[in-house]
Design a protein around this nucleic acid. Sequence first.
DNA 1: GCCCAGGTGGGTA
DNA 2: TACCCACATGGG
Length: 230
Amino acid sequence: MVGDLLPYYRRLRRHFGPQGWWPARNRLEVVVGTILVQNTAWRNVEAALEQLRRAHRLSLPGLRALSAADLGQLIRSAGFWRQKARTVQGLVAWLDGQHAGRLDRMVRLPTPVLRRQLLQLRGVGPETADSILLYAGGHATFVVDAYTRRVLLRHHLGPPPPAPSPDRASYIQVQSWIESRLPRQAEIYNEFHALLVAVGKSYCHRREPDCPNCPLRPLLPGDGRPAARI
DNA sequence: GCCCAGGTGGGTA
DNA sequence: TACCCACATGGG
């Protein structure tokens, strides 16, 4: 069980190379990025981060100094900007109130405690919480996102959907399935998740799961069988 | 024009 | 619990 996914991890890493996630310059950028990227293409997030940077507001003091309206305008390109501005401000307020405004203290909390606290924040769900835990804090927590599900489905991996319903496994079920098949190390969770995103992005077309030109078919199992619906 | 992108929360049965 | 929907911008 443990280590079942290691061969795939190694194969993907040889093919794509180290991914070096999260694409950010510091811890705060990771945290802000995890919120901005919710259901949004990363390029739109980059534009928003750049706007914050140019306004000298991509820092805790900078964010504190912004009204919700002004923050919203700066992150507009990331979409859902009213919600996301509120979420960022809520997170900064919580950080100030509970952790003396210090991310380095926040990430030192035990994983289950920090996860629970993050999930209490409005606008922070399981994926955002786990992204902060893993990519900002180095906690060994696997991030389940749309790419994770898509790639697992396409290659007939992952937990079976619980019959008769719902039609897909829960976040926790997918997360447990992966975590129990890899060494419990943040570095491996980090890299494997980033590699799954690289796989997902490299598919010729999301709507053509059987495309014979997909260069990744030898990298993950599932060849010789009809591809799962994605 | 239409579809989609590294989700989340609220409402309803 | 299991759907459904709003939330919004930008690129293919």
